[in-house]
Design a protein around this nucleic acid. Structure first.
Lengths: 217, 217
DNA sequence: AGATTGAACAATTCGTTGATTATTCAGAAA
DNA sequence: TTTCTGAATAATCAACGAATTGTTCAATCT
């Protein structure tokens, strides 16, 4: 029994390492030639295996891309969480930091890297649920931020999950910036700044001063 | 001189009536068979003229479509203006009515009428500035509403044009509903309701009661 | 027995060709 | 002269065969 489990964990670890190898090979190919221009045969050859063998580790080509995207996205999520719970900052500022980070990341990613853009559109097109999964993950972070702010007595939001949804709806334009408008990053940042001011303070906002950020830079 | 101007206005009026005839013929064809499936030759035949003659009245096929769209859009603008300045309603309610009307109109237009959807996408693709022109028109209405509200002492908004831009940015998702999400109209209405609540009252909104609209219906 | 292969299969993409159609313009008609 | 025509042109589109490529699986190897 010990030997059996030992063998099992070894093969599991092996499997994982092979998966990893495949992902690394695909990452190189995708970022170099693009998703469409790399073939499964090439990825397999890079891993010194047959094309068919890839399918023991991934259901299909698109799943390799998804794996790569998810790896990257989860790093991004962590950086968002860090911003959301940054100590010594008001909830307002943290919310702002969160949304600005989101805007800047997607902007730069899609702007300077046509390969990343290609992968994003393919995944979005072929797996519509993926975008929803990402949104849900970010809502969790909003809720964590709200919980924390509430604990500290900063603000009291009745339905945090709903409020998070509404903030997402209102900032859609800044989440997939170049699908929408061909605005430059500075212009987008100015707009996001204005929208946030409205969202936080409302139309007849009381505290209309403390909102000068680095957006004007 | 009198005769000259007389002749001129007559030919102008004639030209306009021919333009009108062309637009009517195209409208029938476009709504029946779609923009892509109707040919200039057919429109010309419907007007008992040669294809070439169409180009004395319109620079191209797309301009006929644009003319039709604009005609329709200007009716819509008028109905928006009516809502914006409706007497006996608070600025808040009028703003809400405006945005809900906008959502419902585009939703129904694009939902039930694939021809309208086709024309919208073709124009949006071929004439990117057109969407901007529409947005600018609607901002004017927002500003009129704000001016009116200010006169009545309801609210005081410092930079009305900017605020209008921000409201548009925050409600993008509801302006081209089906390009974004495949949400149903009731869900969209609930979301718009929530976003408006945030926009008007802010995150820690004070007056969280008077916001029950027909959105729940 | 389980892991791996690579030829076979099916789906997709690609490039070419032919037809359709928007647009132009030299000339006819008014 | 001004208005209009319709054949000529050029751009776009549709179709279809060929080639490529994602995926499967019977056979092979370890």
């Amino acid at each position: 029994m010990e030997i059996r489990t030992g063998l099992l964990t070894i093969t599991m670890a092996e499997k994982d390492s092979v998966r990893c190898q495949i992902v690394e090979a695909a990452k190189k190919r995708f970022s170099h030639f693009g998703y469409g221009k790399t073939t499964m045969a090439e990825v397999a050859a890079d891993c010194s295996m047959s094309p068919g063998n890839l399918y023991r580790f991934f259901p299909g080509k698109l799943d390799i891309a998804e794996c790569i995207a998810t790896e990257d996205y989860e790093r991004h999520l962590e950086s968002l969480r860090k911003l959301a719970l940054a100590p010594g900052k008001s909830a307002r500022d943290r919310l702002r930091d969160l949304l600005f980070e989101e805007l800047r990341r997607t902007y730069h990613k899609l702007e300077k890297d046509p390969r990343a853009y290609e992968m994003a559109t393919v995944i979005a097109h072929e797996r519509p649920q993926y975008a929803n999964w990402m949104l849900a993950n970010e809502r969790k972070i909003f809720v964590e931020l709200f919980d924390d702010a509430e604990k500290k007595g900063e603000i009291a939001i009745p339905d945090k999950e709903i409020t998070a949804e509404m903030i997402q709806a209102a900032t859609m334009k800044f989440r997939y910036p170049q699908l929408w408008s061909k605005l430059t990053l500075p212009k987008l940042e100015r707009e996001l700044d204005g929208v946030l001011k409205l969202l936080i303070d409302g139309l007849c906002g009381t505290s209309r001063e403390g909102a000068r950020t680095e957006a004007a830079a």
